[in-house]
């Protein structure tokens, strides 16, 4: 194990079950704290990771994807990044085709577009966020600045 130039990472794989999302939140917050992310934003980070993981779990369940949800925590020199990846295939982008299955149409009773709300929360909380998806799955990448020297004290 060498520390120095390389980025320190922690990877977490978990079966797409709602009960594991809390574990992912706790691990992410613990690693972020260690990396020097400001205490004041840890609450927001915890929430954002939870939203991203909940969304991935929901996508795996609704698409019948057996693979686990991936969370990668990356400690860089000046920032702390979190990537949450899912393997739920997205349909190739189509035009404004009417009559096609609407995204999120499989809402349960009282579903109320929770998926959209999850993304809304993430984009409201995190300044640096990137959401991508293609036919092989999706990725949410978020990052927060770290406080230099926080680790040393």
């Amino acid at each position: 194990m060498t520390e120095g130039d390389g980025m320190a990472t922690v990877e977490l794989l978990f079966s797409a079950l709602p009960e594991h999302v809390r574990t992912a939140r706790l691990v992410a917050a613990a690693v972020a704290r260690r990396a020097g992310v400001d205490e004041a934003v840890l609450d927001e980070l915890r929430l954002a990771v939870g939203e991203a993981c909940s969304r991935a779990v929901g996508l795996h369940l609704s698409h019948g994807v057996a693979a686990p949800v991936r969370v990668v925590l990356i400690e860089d020199e000046k920032k702390f990044s979190i990537e949450v990846g899912d393997d739920a295939p997205r349909p190739a982008p189509v035009g404004a085709a009417s009559g096609a299955a609407r995204p999120g149409s499989a809402q349960d009773e009282g579903g109320d577009g929770e998926d959209d709300m999850g993304l809304a929360v993430i984009s409201g909380l995190v300044d640096d966020v990137e959401v991508t998806a293609d036919e092989t799955g999706g990725l949410i990448r978020m990052s927060w600045p770290t406080t230099p020297g926080a680790m040393a004290s």
């Binding site: 939140r25 929430l47 939870g50 009773e109 009282g110 579903g111 109320d112 929770e114 999850g118």
Partner: peptide, 17 residues
């Protein structure tokens, strides 16, 4: 101690009801 969008969705669902 913690509330996420799933919880918000449930509250909105309750309001609709």
């Amino acid at each position: 101690d913690f509330l996420d969008s799933t919880g918000l969705g449930v509250l909105v669902g309750g309001l609709k009801r």
